[in-house]
Write a protein that binds this DNA or RNA. Structure first.
Length: 669
RNA sequence: AGCGGGGUGGGGCAGCCAGGAAGCCCGCCGGGCUCAUAACCCGGAGGUCCGAGGUUCAAAUCCUCGCCCCGCUACCA
């Protein structure tokens, strides 16, 4: 295998004022994880770093409103994000934060160096200042009347009504968004980065880049053509990294210009923590052959193609510019933008309470907005998980394992391909793996899925056509080679999906008898002499019910569930009954077999109450029974009804019982 | 306004750069199979490829004009 060199993989730093939503996840953090996993199974040397971006006005204001210390607030949110990453199996080598000593010192030294190199200058500016909150107000913290159309709720940067771009000073009757009072104009001095000085070098760097996409290049070159402007790099915030320049005692570095340097400082911190080496990071960042992959949203492209490189250039240090930008468009939620205030969307912490991480990871890749905005829909989740992951892929795995276990005692010797159809499957495997390899390298993860599915479907078709369950007796050689071919296809599909669904892939590889910790891309081309499967295999995925998940989400949020009408309720026949007999079902830990007298007849219920009630406690108790449930088979016998019980968050279970005496058979409603 | 993306059977998309019989997935209709989680496989119906004009032996694909959708636009994180 050809090694491409060292890789630094990073993602946009989540802003620490809340837990990211599914759109943030696929755009940056998850994509970076997938790419890194891909590089590693290909044998590449990669480190994955990112962190929480915790400075800046929004957090300062939020803390102010909550009466909390900003650090205290970001501590909390940072740890939530860390938990969330763990939950989604997103494994960073260093997931850090901007309020840490290594970063703070790095940023100050970095800007001091640029300052000494003469690329930073001072300029006086007029800004709105809120005397009540003692805060300079950035664009979006001011609202007022639009001078063009008279719209009263125009924001400081743009009027949503007429679309014109504004500056806060143009607003008629401006108001502070925090307290509503009218701010005053104040003069402040800020430090500016001389971006235009780098126009030529940037143009050269971008147009000569062999790693940036056409799209990113054109977009960036266009901006340079329109002319770059100096950018102010300081703010009046208290919550931030103090600007190191002489005469900048009251200023902090503007978050944008500070957080990006985390890409470098997080690598530095990684090597300090790992090897105690202060300078090892330079072997990575100062190596012209080190590849740097950024996973960001589309709005962030110029920052990574223009501003960040210009800053690196300004230091005079030999930074690598072998940049790969994996920019995504936006993921919307059922056609609308994610919005916390309008409760549109799903947030990562909620998502983990609803489904296993791999189900989300697969669905998010399925929806990954690579060429245009896409939209999360419940139908897409349903399709991705139930059809593709479960019915096609999961079921194929289950079929293969069952066939090997049933007809070959769990051990399959190597076999050569025997039929044209088997040959076709292997040919598909080769084709698909080549394409998938390219898609990963080109950061087109979404395209991986239909390709792998093509192989999976071919494999399913081969089983149907060659009928190994019947040929195992009449033509064992044929059945044998069919199964070995399927085995190769399944293993290949599993490895190709590993970066996307790592937990499940590892599990499946374990079932297939691959017990290595390290997953390797090349293993998919190997043909072991014998395959010994794990006899304890289980279906790798389960079908999900979308309505249940929606309801679970409503419960999580404390929302009311879907409204139903009275007719719906009247279909449920609930009766009062008395428990007549109760006994533990043999061979089950949880199930009790209960007979309930409901007046005119007796009814049998199998209920999972053993952990909560002793059989004797139940006898004689008045309970509520749903008598018209469809019979449900539990283990080896059927249950004809259901008892109503309540369960709380602590996992306690209590049966419902009527208040006072009432006859058995009384209708509940 | 500027820049970018897009308009292809009921829905979602590929194909367009390097013109040559319109493809994939879902849905729908019909059939097969029972190894597999009512899962799997096969077949069928269904399209003025936004409109108009042009280039060409040949255009979804190239050119011109127009219509319609969506996103981005840097001292916002």
């Amino acid at each position: 295998m050809i090694k491409i060199g060292k890789w630094i993989v990073t993602s946009a730093w989540p802003y620490a004022h809340g837990v990211p939503h599914l759109g943030n996840l696929i755009g940056s953090l998850l994509s970076a994880d997938i790419f890194t996993r891909y590089l590693r199974i290909k044998g590449e040397d990669a480190i994955l770093v990112s962190g929480s971006d915790e400075h800046g006005t929004p957090i300062e204001v939020k803390a102010l409103q909550m009466g909390r210390d900003p650090k205290d607030l970001t501590d909390e949110i940072h740890s939530k994000i860390v938990n969330m990453l763990e939950g989604f199996n997103i494994k960073f080598d260093n997931y850090t934060r901007t309020h840490n000593d290594v970063h703070i010192k790095f940023v100050q030294d970095f800007y001091m160096k640029i300052f000494e190199n003469g690329h930073i200058f001072k300029k006086k500016d007029k800004m709105l200042y809120c005397e009540h909150d003692k805060l300079f107000l950035p664009d979006r913290f001011v609202v007022g009347t639009c001078p063009h159309c008279g719209y009263e709720h125009a924001r400081g940067d743009q009027c949503e009504n007429c679309g014109k771009l504004l500056t806060p000073l143009e607003l008629v009757e401006p108001k502070c968004i925090v307290c509503g009072e009218e701010p005053v104009v104040r003069e402040t001095t800020h430090f500016y980065f001389d971006l235009p000085a780098f126009e030529e070098r940037l143009r050269k760097m971008i147009s000569e880049s062999e790693t940036l996409t056409e799209n990113a290049k054109n977009f960036s070159l266009n901006m340079i053509k329109e002319g770059l402007r100096p950018r102010s790099i300081t703010r009046n915030n208290k919550w931030g990294i103090p600007a190191p320049f002489p005469g900048a005692e009251d200023l902090t570095i503007y978050v944008w210009f500070e957080a990006v340097l985390g890409y470098v400082s997080a690598v530095k911190e990684y090597f300090i923590k790992k090897e105690g080496d202060q300078d090892k990071w330079k072997e990575w960042w100062f190596d012209k052959d080190t590849n740097v992959a950024f996973f960001i949203g589309k709005d962030n492209i110029p920052f990574h193609t223009i501003i960040f490189p210009a800053l690196l250039m300004a230091t005079g240090d030999p930074y690598t510019f072998k940049f790969y930008i994996g920019a995504t468009e936006y993921l919307n939620f059922e056609g609308k933008k994610f919005s916390k205030t309008h409760k549109i969307g799903i947030w990562c912490d909620e998502a983990l309470k609803l489904l296993p991480p791999d189900y989300w990871r697969y669905t998010l890749v399925y929806l990954r907005p690579e060429t245009r905005d896409s939209s999360f829909t419940w139908e897409a989740l349903d399709y991705a998980v139930n059809e593709e992951l479960n019915n096609h892929f999961g079921n194929l795995v289950q079929r293969l394992l069952t066939l090997i276990k049933k007809y070959y005692g769990g051990r399959l010797q190597k076999a050569d391909v025997k039929t044209g159809d088997q040959k076709e499957v292997i040919k598909t495997l080769d084709e698909v793996s080549r394409k998938v390899d390219r898609f990963y390298m080109d950061m087109r993860f979404q395209k991986v899925l239909p390709e792998v599915m093509r192989l999976v479907k071919r494999a399913n078709a081969l089983i149907n056509k060659e009928r190994p369950w019947e040929k195992a007796k009449e033509n064992p050689d044929l059945a044998h080679s069919t199964l070995y071919t399927i085995y190769r296809a399944v293993k290949a599909a599993t490895i190709m999906l590993y970066p996307i669904i790592p937990e499940s892939s590892r599990k499946i590889l374990g079932y297939l008898g691959e017990n290595d910790e390290e997953v390797s891309w090349n293993a998919m081309y190997e043909e072991p002499e014998a395959v010994v499967i794990d006899p304890g295999f289980k279906p790798p995925f389960n079908r999900i019910n979308i309505e249940d998940i929606k309801n679970k989400l409503r419960l999580l949020r404390g929302d009311v569930m879907e409204r139903i009408d009275i007719g719906y309720l009247s279909k449920i026949d609930m009766r009062i009954g008395t428990v007549e007999k109760a006994e533990k079902k043999v061979g089950s830990k949880k199930i009790l077999r209960i007979s309930v007298d409901i007046g005119k007849r007796k009814i049998k219920v199998l209920a999972g109450l053993a952990p909560y009630y002793k059989p004797d406690e139940l006898v004689g108790k008045k309970v509520v029974v749903i008598t018209n449930m469809k019979p449900k088979k539990i283990i080896d016998e059927t249950s004809d009804a259901m008892l109503l019980a309540a369960i709380d968050d602590k996992g306690r279970v209590r049966l419902l019982t009527p208040d006072g005496d009432i006859d058995n058979g009384a209708k509940v409603g």
